[in-house]
Design a protein around this nucleic acid. Structure first.
Lengths: 213, 213
DNA sequence: AACTTTTGTCACCGAGCGGTGAAAAATATT
DNA sequence: AATATTTTTCACCGCTCGGTGACAAAAGTT
């Protein structure tokens, strides 16, 4: 009675249970607890199955990465094409949606933290998968809007995304960053305004091109 | 011969050795390896001394945090007051110096990663100490330059600092971010230009105030 | 010299980890 | 019904971890 009701035996079913348990463990306890013992305990089965069905932790992580990659677009959601006609609008909406998606997905936050804290082949792959998924979503949502060519939009957008991601991470871990509290909605409203300000100043002003020394 | 030459016994000396070893372990192996066994091994002494002299890991971390706080200003270095007359100039220089300091201090990067990846009382304290040190340095360097009052400079600067910090972290861990390679000097030149562009667009343009939806 | 205190080392504990070989239990095949 | 295959569990290994009590050796004190 203390264990699960092991009514039937089916491999693909327990595979799903294991993957779900892996997600739960990662989301709730972080990557330091992400191991065969802990996952098997959460899944209510023996850890041996992780080796048999996924070839160990690496295989399980790969499956997890693929699933996350598929869900990524859904988490971010669509961008209303009516409210963003300029590239500035588009980047602004993209950043704000990314921020909200990160804030409400503990799993995404844990993965992002993992990528930064532990430099291993596994996290490298995770980072690549997530980056590719984000890039695909951006390209998919951008539509006919063309980015400006007089600036390094790749580097600028990378910096903006980095800002959003880091603030979300810091909020989750310690609830503040740089003396700015990151707890309730009022705090996040400040952050969203700041992001909007940065984007609009950089992309909306026609004469805001790169200046020399 | 395999061990250290244990010539003399002095407590404050071994305390310094232990602190240095703790820094080395954290910088070279990350916070997951930051424990009594590993540090004592690196220091070439018994782990019992960590308990006796520092009251355990927590006390050692506190000492380490104090030392880092003192060194923080030196790592960042002074800002040339001649080259920055406006607030925009000041923030730009501040961010670029912070970026360079982070890039060359593996210890700072590891601490920053720790703060994000593991939410514990220890890391909370570390984050507070580091944030206070940065704020003190900023205030010390700012001089008579007053920030603008028509925008939320706290939130904007937090976002910019977060961007810089996250890019440095991601570069150290996986060598890229958001599809942008972060390896050689050319890559970092792109990032620095992007940061400059963001700062100047936001703070230099007189009419770049917050716009309403 | 006999002693106390400080400094440092050693041996051990229980717990959790990743990983593996073998048995058991359910299902499929004949 | 008997056999083979798949699915699942169990028991165990070696290792590292954080933590502690007991002991050895140097240095200070009387």
């Amino acid at each position: 009675m203390t264990k699960k009701a092991n009514i039937t035996r089916d491999r693909s079913g327990t595979e799903r249970v294991i993957v779900a348990a892996a997600k739960r463990v990662l989301a709730e306890q972080g990557f330091s607890a992400f191991g065969v013992n802990s996952i098997a305990r959460a899944a209510g089965c023996d850890k041996q199955l992780i080796y048999r069905y996924f070839g160990g932790l690496d295989g399980l992580i790969e499956v997890l990465g693929r699933e996350m990659s598929d869900q990524f677009g859904d988490m971010l959601g669509p961008i209303d094409p009516a409210t963003c006609v300029t590239y500035s609008d588009f980047i602004e909406h993209m950043l704000l949606q990314l921020l909200r998606a990160l804030r409400q997905s503990e799993l995404l936050l844990r993965i992002a933290a993992w990528e930064i804290a532990d430099a291993s082949p596994i996290t490298r792959k995770l980072a690549q998968v997530r980056g590719a998924a984000l890039a695909a979503w951006v390209k998919d949502q951008r539509g006919p809007i063309a980015p400006p060519t007089d600036r390094d939009v790749g580097a600028i957008n990378a910096a903006l995304i980095a800002a959003v991601q880091h603030l979300a991470l810091s909020a989750h871990a310690i609830g503040e960053f740089g003396g700015v509290r990151l707890a309730d909605e009022a705090d996040w409203s400040r952050v969203e305004t700041a992001v909007s300000t940065l984007v609009r100043a950089t992309y909306s002003h026609p004469d805001a091109s790169v200046q020399r020394g």
